[in-house]
Structures are given as C-alpha cells and as structure tokens.
Design a binder for these strands. Structure first.
Lengths: 303, 303
DNA sequence: TTCATAGTTTGTCCTGGACAAAGTCGTCCT
DNA sequence: AGGACGACTTTGTCCAGGACAAACTATGAA
C-alpha cells in the first residue's frame, strides 16, 4: 500500500500531461493568478487534478488560436463553452453513432464502424471528409465533457489500425513524386501523417514515411539519401506555430531548391505568412491538386 | 532565402531532440563543463550540432544505466565505444541483411524482410526473439555510427506496419484476462506496446490498447469502464526509471486490488525494487507464463 | 481600404541556489 | 562470507524573479 495520496501533481508531471512547459505554468501563475497550485512542505508546487483538467482545456483553446489573456482566467464551464464555439463543428448529428460506440467502449465495434465507412466512401472521401469530421466530433465531445481522454485515445488507435490496413491493401505504384513524410521533434500526433500517407499512396505517389519526431537535419539527410522530390511535414494543432515556421524555414534553407517542401495540418492555421518556398496545403483535399500540379510541371515523369 | 545559418540550436530545440531537459543541460554545463554551448548576442545558449550529437550518445548511455559522472565528459569516440560495450549484443552477423537493407533505404524491402521472418518464425518467436534481436542490432548500428536516426525511424515504421498487419489477421478470441494496455505520459516509443499486444493477442487475451501517453487517472478510468482484469504498462529504455516507479505506485494505489498491474520493458531494468503489487515482466517471454499463471489462479475463466 | 508604426502580450531563456531521492561505500554484526 | 545499516556523494528537479525578442493588436496616415 503506497502513500500516494498526494493532493496534486508536481510541475513536471503537469508539463507532461498538459503540454504546457514549466516556464509557462510558472509565468501564468505570476501574471494571471492561475493556475494557483498548492505547495508541498519544501515549497514545490502541487497542482490539484481540477486545475490540471482546466489547464488541458486552456491548452486546447490556445491551440485554436486564442490568446492566454482572454482564456487563462476563465472557469472550466466557460472554457468548455468557448471551446465548443471555437472548434469546427461537424454538424449536429453527424457522428452520433460513433460517439455512442466510444461511450460503450467496444474497440471492435468502433473499428468495424470505421471500416464500414471506409468501404462506403472509398479512401479519398473517407480520409479527407469522413475522418476529418469524425476527428472534429471527437474533439468536440471531449470539450463538452461527453467523453474522456482514454476514449479519445481508443478512437485514434482504431483509426490508426483502419488506415494502416487500408494502405497495406493499396497497390504501391511508386510513381513520382517520391515524398519523404514526417513531423518535426515535439510533435506527438501521428494521425495526420497517416492521413496524408493514405492520400498520397492512393494517387500513386511513392511515400516514404518516417513516423514522428525527425530533427531537421535528419529530414535533409533522408531526402538526399532517398533522392526524394518532395519533403512533406505534418503539424497538429497542438504544435506551436512558431516552432513550425522556424523548422520549415530551416528546412527550406537546407534542402536543395529543386526539392519541394509541402506542409499541412491544423498547426499552420494560425500562420499568416509561411516562409518562402514552402507550400502550405490545407485542407487535405488540396493535396491532390498539389500533386497533379507537381506532375504537370514535370512532364518527364509518368503519372 | 532565409538566414537560418545559425551556429547552433537553442536550448529548447536541444531538449526536444535529445530528451534531456533544459534544467539538466544547464546543470551539466555547470558541473561537468559539458555541454559548452556558444552564446547568442543576448546570452542565449546555442548548441553546435556536434554537441547535440554527443548529447544523444550520452543520453543513450544513461538509458543503459550508467551515471553522468562517468559519461558526460567523454568524447564522441569514447562514447560510441562504451555504448557498444554496454548495449546487449545480438551476436556478430545476426542481422547483417537487415542492416544492409536499411543502408540501401528501400522500405519495401525492409518490410518484406520482416514479413519473411515473421512467416518463418511465427508470431511468438518473431516478436520475442527475432524482433528483439533486430532492435538491438539497429540500436548497436546507430551507436557505431553505421546508420543514422532517419534510418532507425524507417525501421520502426516498417516494424509497426508488419506487426499491425499480423495482428489484424489474428483471431480475436476475447478470452480472459481483459488487458488495458498503454504507456504513461512522457513515453514516446510505441513499439514495445505493439509487441506486447501481439503476444497477448496470440494467446487469446482480450487486449484493449490505448496507445501511448495515458495519464494515471485515465488508466484507472479506462480499467473501470472496460472492466479490465489487468492493466499493462510498457516502458522503453528512454523512460526515466524514477517516473516509472512513481507512476506504477500511484496506479497500484488507485486500482482495485483485484486488478492486476503488469509492467515491462527496458525502462524497468534499472529498478531494484518495484512497488508492491506490481508484476514486472521481463523479458517478454515471461508474459506468456504470467498469462497462464493468471488463468490457472482463476479456474472460472475459460482458456 | 492598405500599410507602416507604436504599444502590449507572451513564450522562452537566464542565473544561481537549494534539496530530496537514489546510488555508493565502508563498517559492523551475524 | 553476507547482509544490514548509516554516512557520504551524485543527480534531477524545482524555485525566484528578471529580461527580452517575436508575435500580436491598435492606431493613424496614405
């Protein structure tokens, strides 16, 4: 039996759980008076679980582009409300069944449901339409407190399974362009990556996916070694826009000018002016056009 | 054209790339004189790429259980040497072909190779034997500078594909125990999770995998909601042992006594005494025994 | 409207100190 | 010999409070 009934989490644990750095947590406390953690005997901050939950909501609002000033002081209720307003709404009853399945918590049923939709829609519409809406619906449901984190996790795990399986069935046509696909360090979400991969694969491009968290220099090395035509980067909403821009600028600088640099994902929504030489692709449908444009600009390549 | 020719990375980027916290980077500098970053005009640290590479090596040595004191001051050469000694050696020529394929960099060929071995070995031996050795071989090759990070990434991406596909073919017998499977926040590696999932699935357990990074309270909620018999946690070598122990203790405290708590992975190697009520399972083969023990202790359940 | 400029907000980084947990080592007792 | 215990050392994490540049906002001119 462990005496682990602490009244709260230390700052490091909160950083890991919320994605807000220790520095930010401390400076918010100083500036806005929230969070207002308890203190351990030695002066260490201890964040009560309610405050951690509230911080998670704040984080998502920031990810939507709101500024701390307007958000940090709000109560949980208000945060939920505001987040529901801010999040893209997939429509009222769009994904009712999915959410019910999530609440029941039978992973098989969820996978089956997704599989069914995939079969109905086909890969293209499934990924760029249905899945996008489902993701939004799930995010919305979390914001409203209808589902919890573990249910979100369960969802993305199932999506991942379905997507990977769909791709394994797709013919590998290996036509140009050859695309190196990955994310920068600090990105934790891999769903976007898979969605991009599926679309590219479907349209006959040769995708070489490296998963998440590739340092800039490694992306460059991979592009060279694989003689890729394009480097494609994915950024989730949770990824700091400033880091994205920084990374893309550095990449553009290090990659040969002949190599395309494509970037997409909710993490770039708030970026006013992307670095020169970077193609921002958003929404996902644009990827197909971009692909065709690349090919028609290079008639030498088949496709 | 961007002026991104900085002589080094800021401390935050180094944290993301190496997994060493800003605090650690600064305190090492103070104590050991390494790293010794340049300074920007405003006093900010700028870590040259060579030092970042060296830090990556240091990090892996710490992950092997060595102490900073003995390691931080060493040169790159010595670090590589020492790491080669410390890492478990899968034998001289064991995975020669795999490494050659990795160096060539054709993902298809790698997947094919893995698939072939899977077919030869069967799931059990593939996961607990061949894959473990392959992982070691790849880690070793990186330590020796034979391959780089992006090649490691490519490898784990292929392994992931092969494993997920193998599991999708496996019959879902859904016998007891029902196992909630995940990792704690801060864990970035998901391979271990998949390997465990494959073994459990093969032996007819009902696995509910939630991917990586589940807060302790969410694990508890998931176990309750899913009426699971066991919570299984995976820890990679990169995961701080102290955090693992802390998290496991908290989990044990919050979970009902009737629910088993199984933990495994290289991240627990250095743990002398795990918290009471936690089953440490290492190596992976033990998982099968543990499963059978669980079942024979509960003759009511089929299996 | 669009664009430049002044003001504000915000994340990140800095120094240098402190301390508890974990590891190491030597000693004593069985 | 082996194991338990206590003293010493190492190490990661946390603290305070200040600073600043980049990003954003608001204001006013063309």
């Amino acid at each position: 039996m462990n005496d682990n009934n602490l009244p709260g989490l230390p700052i490091g644990a909160v950083e890991r759980e919320t994605g807000l750095s220790k520095d930010v947590l401390r400076v918010w406390e100083r500036r806005y008076g929230f969070p207002s953690p308890l203190r351990a005997g030695n002066g260490d901050r201890l964040y009560p679980p309610e405050q951690v939950d509230r911080l998670r909501l704040v984080k998502r609002l920031l990810d939507q582009g709101l500024r701390p000033n307007r958000v940090v002081r709000l109560e949980t209720r208000q945060l939920q409300q505001l987040l529901a307003e801010q999040l893209p709404d997939p429509g009222p009853e769009t994904e009712h069944t999915l959410l019910e399945l999530l609440q029941e918590g039978r992973p098989q049923a969820i996978a089956h449901h997704l599989q069914h939709q995939l079969a109905t829609d086909g890969v293209q519409r499934f990924v760029t339409g249905t899945l996008v809406r489902s993701n939004q619906a799930v995010g919305m449901a979390w914001a409203r407190g209808r589902i919890t984190i573990f249910q979100e996790h369960l969802y993305s795990e199932q999506v991942q399974n379905v997507l990977r399986q769909a791709m394994s069935v797709l013919p590998q046509r290996q036509e140009r362009p050859r695309v190196v696909l990955t994310t920068l360090p600090g990105e934790i979400h891999s769903l976007g990556l898979l969605m991009v991969q599926a679309v590219l694969l479907l349209h006959g491009a040769e995708v070489r996916s490296f998963g998440t968290q590739m340092p800039v220099t490694e992306v460059v090395a991979a592009v060279r070694r694989h003689q890729a035509d394009v480097a494609a980067l994915s950024f989730s909403a949770a990824f700091p826009a400033t880091q994205a821009v920084e990374g893309l600028a550095a990449l553009r600088d290090l990659l040969p000018a002949t190599v395309g640099l494509w970037a997409g994902g909710a993490g770039l929504r708030s970026v006013r002016q992307p670095p020169e030489g970077v193609d921002v692709i958003d929404p996902l449908e644009q990827l197909v056009e971009r692909l065709q444009r690349w090919r028609s600009a290079r008639p030498g390549y088949p496709g």
